[in-house]
Design a binder for these strands. Structure first.
Lengths: 139, 139
DNA sequence: CTGATATTAGAACTTATGTTCTATATTATT
DNA sequence: AATAATATAGAACATAAGTTCTAATATCAG
């Protein structure tokens, strides 16, 4: 069964009332620029963009579930990893040993069912970890 | 001059002709599901998603420019890298030495203005390199 | 109190990546 | 034909990341 069909059934197959959307000037402008660049109708471009963003969102939900299985400390380490820090830098920031970071990364990768940090960074590429920059706030 | 146009000018900083968008049933459903999940207005979620997709698109354009500066061989190596292959695996696939791959990666990273493969994989995370799986087709 | 997790840390490896530099042969471009 | 770019390859070294183990505290839920 396609995801769409499943989704529709889950919702009780209601006939959708064709709701309209409006976007602010800035978004409209960017949309028009992009449509212009690609010589395509603005509505079509908007459609494609929204489809893309939605699929990304739903894909991210699976990783969100795995994220929630991490301990507080593991989340902190993963966050800093995704912010681009190396094991050594993370150890310094959290004031623990390099080997401890390796332990946390090992466990985190296992819980994410991923094989290396590169995959992890890619999987969570769109997540905003800026709030995790200053560990103190989370301890 | 129409009354509306006159009014807009009189009021200054006119909102551009507020163009409306409609999306098909499937998109509407997903939007509503997501809005429901997050207890937020559908229009607001749509706004956020569109903003996200647009910024991703424009960011990708910069990397596309850099990608086009790569030589054919460098593109091949970067593609396989982003597909998750290691230097050694790429060397085997392309039937060249490990050191050659290192050269190509070094040059490619420089052209992309990135520091390591992790950043590269993240930057091109949404690109589809499946066509590059079989090098023969591109040589 | 007690088992289950979490947090910390290390040894002893192995592999993978990154850096700097050099160098030759092959293609394009002018 | 001469220059520039590309593709190839290596040495020699440095750092980073991943693997397999073990193990001591600490904390929390039942």
């Amino acid at each position: 069964m396609l995801f769409w069909e499943w989704l529709r059934k889950a919702l009780g197959s209601s006939p959708a009332q064709q709701r309209t959307f409006t976007f602010d000037n800035q978004l409209n402008h960017m949309l028009r620029v992009l449509a212009e660049q690609e010589s395509r109708p603005v509505q079509q471009v908007a459609n494609e963009l929204l489809t893309y963003a939605l699929s990304e969102r739903f894909a991210a939900q699976e990783y969100l579930r795995r994220w929630q299985r991490l301990s507080r400390r593991e989340q902190q380490v993963v966050a800093l990893l995704c912010l681009g820090y190396s094991y050594r830098q993370i150890a310094e920031q959290l004031i623990v040993s390099y080997d401890t970071i390796k332990s946390h990364v090992r466990n985190s990768l296992h819980k994410f069912e991923l094989n290396n940090v590169s995959e992890l960074r890619r999987a969570l590429a769109d997540w905003d970890f800026s709030q995790w920059q200053h560990p103190a706030r989370h301890l």
